[in-house]
Structure formats: C-alpha cells, structure tokens
Design a protein around this nucleic acid. Sequence first.
DNA 1: GGTCTGTTGTCCATAATATGGACAAGAACG
DNA 2: CGTTCTTGTCCATATTATGGACAACAGACC
Lengths: 266, 266
Amino acid sequence: MDNRPSRKATRGTLEPRQGAQAIRRALAVLRILAAGREDGVPLAEVVRATGLTRPTVHRIVHVLIEEGIVERHDRTGRYAIGNQVPELALARARPSRLLVAANPSLRRASAEIGDTLFLTVRTGNDTLCVDRRIGVYPIQVLSIEVGARRPLGVSSAGVAILAAMPAQDARKIVAANEKRFEAYQTDIATVMSQITDARRRGYNMREIGLVQGTKSISTWIKTPDGQPAAAITVSAVRTRLGPRREQEVAEILLREARIIEQVIRG
Amino acid sequence: MDNRPSRKATRGTLEPRQGAQAIRRALAVLRILAAGREDGVPLAEVVRATGLTRPTVHRIVHVLIEEGIVERHDRTGRYAIGNQVPELALARARPSRLLVAANPSLRRASAEIGDTLFLTVRTGNDTLCVDRRIGVYPIQVLSIEVGARRPLGVSSAGVAILAAMPAQDARKIVAANEKRFEAYQTDIATVMSQITDARRRGYNMREIGLVQGTKSISTWIKTPDGQPAAAITVSAVRTRLGPRREQEVAEILLREARIIEQVIRG
DNA sequence: GGTCTGTTGTCCATAATATGGACAAGAACG
DNA sequence: CGTTCTTGTCCATATTATGGACAACAGACC
C-alpha cells in the first residue's frame, strides 16, 4: 500500500514483521465481518472497508468458509463470522481482567443512575461492547448489544477512547478508519471535532445518539501504561439528561472510571 | 505436501481453493494453540503437530502476536490463543443449536446417572468439550473442562465420533492426526482398534480414562445428514461402572442421543 | 424489450510474496 | 564444555498470492 517499512530501518523498535501479508489481510477481513454480527456483511462492503481488491477478498473469504471460520448466508449472500471462531475462543475460558474489574463499578453506577450502561473496549481500530447493564428507569436505550463492533470514532465510547490518547495516535486511527465512516454517516472532520470537544470537557457527550432523541455520556478508562483501553457509557432519552443531571451522571462515571483503573492496577 | 489437486480436475465437486496456503497454515497453527488452552504450546510442539517448518511457524505465530490473535507467555515462552479471538467470537452472540438441543437431555441424564457428563463436539480433526454437568455422587471425575480440545481419536468421545462415521473417513482423520498422537501416548493402530470395538458395541467404552482408575462411556450424536457431530460421555471411578451399571448407563446415553438427534432435526 | 448500476464469481500471466535451508545463540543437563 | 534441547533470524529462491479483465446475474428505470 502506502507505507512500506524500509527493509532494515529502525531495527529493535516495532517494525512490523514481513512475509505474512495474506494472513494480515485475512484478519482484516475477519474484523470487518465481525462488525456485521449475525447478519454478516456483503462482499462489496468488505472490499470497501478493507481497501483490498475484490478478487482478493473473495478468495480470502471463500478459503475461510472452507476452513469453517466464515459462513455465507444462503438467503442474503452475506458473509459472517463462522462457528469455529467461538470454538477457538473456548481455549480462553476465564473472562477478561477488565470485565471482572469493572463488574462492581457497573453494578453500582447502574443502581445510582438507572439508565442503560455500556462497557466498551478498544480492539485495534474498533470499539467492542463487552457488557451492558439495564437500569430501573422504565425507558431504556438498548440500541447497542454486547458484541456490537464499530470503527473507533463512530460511537460515543469510541470518541471518548480517542480523546484519551495522544492526538497523534487518535489522528492516525481516525484516518485508518476513513473508508468505513461513510457507512455510518460520518467523516474525519466530524470525528476530530468531537474528539477535541471531549478532550476539553473531560468526558464525551453526544446529543444525538444512534437512535433519535437519545443522549450519551462516556468516560474513558486507561490502563496503567496510560493508554485508554475502554469506556463507560450511559445512554438515555434526551429529556432524562438535562444539563443538571448530565453533570451528576458524568461525575458518577468519572468516579467509577478512576476506581476501575485502580483495580486494574492491582 | 503430498496431495496437489490437479489444477483443473473434478470441477464442481469440492476441490480446495488455491491461493491461500498461508491463511490455511495460520489456521492450522491456531487450532494447535487452542488445544493448549491458557497454558499454551511451545513452538517446537506446534512444528511437530502441524508438520510445517520452524521458520514458517515462527513467522506465522509472531505475525499473529502482532495482530493480537496469539499471545506469548513471557514466563514459559509458550504460545496461546490471544484475547482478540473471544472478541471476534462475540460477533456470534447466540449459543449453538446443539447446545440448546442437548440441554434438557444432559439435565435429565445427569439426574438419572449421578456421575459427570460431557458434551463433546467434532470440530475439524479435533474434539472440543462444550458442556459439562456434575452429578450428585460425591466422587466426580472432572479431568476434562469445557474448552478442552484434543485430536479426534484420543478421547473416549473422539473414538465414539469416529466409530459413527464411514470407516474410510475415520481412517483419513486418524491418519491426519498421527503426528499429534505421540503427545497423548497413543498411535494409529490403537485408535483404529478402539474404533472397531466401539462400532461393534454400539457405543464407546474405555476402561482406562485419562486419569487412573476411571472408566468412560460415550455415545455419538448424528446430524440429519448422517454425519456424527458430537458425543455424550459419562466418566466415573471404575468401581461405579461395573458390567451391570455400564449397561444401564449406556442405555440412558443411547436414549438421550436419539432424543437430541430428533430435536436437532426440528 | 433495452441499458444502466449494482452485485458476486472466475481466470491466469505476472510480480511479489512466503518459503525453508542454513546459521546463531541461548538453556538445561551431565 | 561438549551435547541436545530449545527459539530466533537471514535471505536467495521458487512458489504463491495478486489483481486486471471478463462474465453473469439481479434490480431499477425508461
């Protein structure tokens, strides 16, 4: 593509290993398919999102089908993650460190706030919802489900995570996701300005959620090395989150984010 | 290797797609690593099991590390499935059809028998334990955990599954697993004779389980197309499974296997 | 009917990629 | 301090993956 790492440049630092282009491409395809969940993704969309040529994507996807890693839905012709992926995942029985660490915080915040809470992690250039807690208030925003995966920058949590990393890194990721933004009706400029706002505010707030009339607040969680790894998000109907209550909720989320960071630290 | 599919032979039938050797190899490596669970597998063992050369395995494994698909344990130097695999698996939220279908049968059989029950599926050339029920009897054989993965032919369930498929197919799989048998102290001849016994008996029985002094009984479950897809296994201390009770337990397992087959059929 | 524009799927000459033999360097052992 | 395990690296080479070009189908629109 554009960045060929001069064959013997900065040895020692993380110069990506050569001789596995096909494997990297296959994984890129898989990550796009994962964003499509059960429904899957049309081939053309995978081509757009990965920037690979269609013959290449086609070949990769069909080999992965033969291997049981990908499935093709006969009805729609869409491609989706196959059942061998969960089978491989069973090799890692225990739940992640973060999930365990965040559990009491999510329970506490959910009880205090009463609206839907989401725990979202960063994975590569994506956000991935890994936990959801439904509150007691009768109207709950359930648009996002556990397993939902979107490009960093698209969701409220994604903007929060980007806001918490060095501007340089954030810009790189946003640029890398450019081709995928179109499908979510956004673009680099919009995302970058949201990041700036969030950074200034100390948390991310978005007036228009994925669903009309909803509002979201997200705070980031950093690992001990200072890199943001996750975000906690509250989503509610807009009327539930006036300026006054926004302040209160944000304080709770910020408090719990700091607590989770402490727990991870050990 | 040995079987190059003559470039344009039996078109239409399932002639494996070309142009993705590297991807196939990477997946073969992943499946071996999955058998190592949390502890992982040393590089040399992966080389043995896959039959690939060491430079190739090394390259593949390290690219997968860069991609977050594989982890290397600093302590031991072993390689294991990384946390991005469960993340990809989240794309498939719902549990498998079989798991749902087998649930009542396992509950019922567990209550009747009182010893540990296992549900094991076939995945490629491996068996994978996907469910385990602990009975009421105070001594339980817990050697195998959910997620345990072994070459078909090694475990009692694996032999049962092989016994239920055409002899031709079984022989092919056993041959393919030859290199991996050594690590489990078995070989082609032993496995084939166990398969013959099981086929004659109608279920598989093994006097010496993985753990000394245990005995196992396994029955196979076939999908509507006649291919065996899974097995139910009882493991108990040998004294619990004398000839009389072996008969009773086998009948229960056979009954439940048929029920599960009916449920899957819809 | 015709003719767009959108798909998905396939072929094959070619260049770029992945390969593996050979070498290096540590660990564990006696 | 040789021996026998490991794991890791290099690089010339041939095998492999690549992508341009073509084909075929499905809707939408006139």
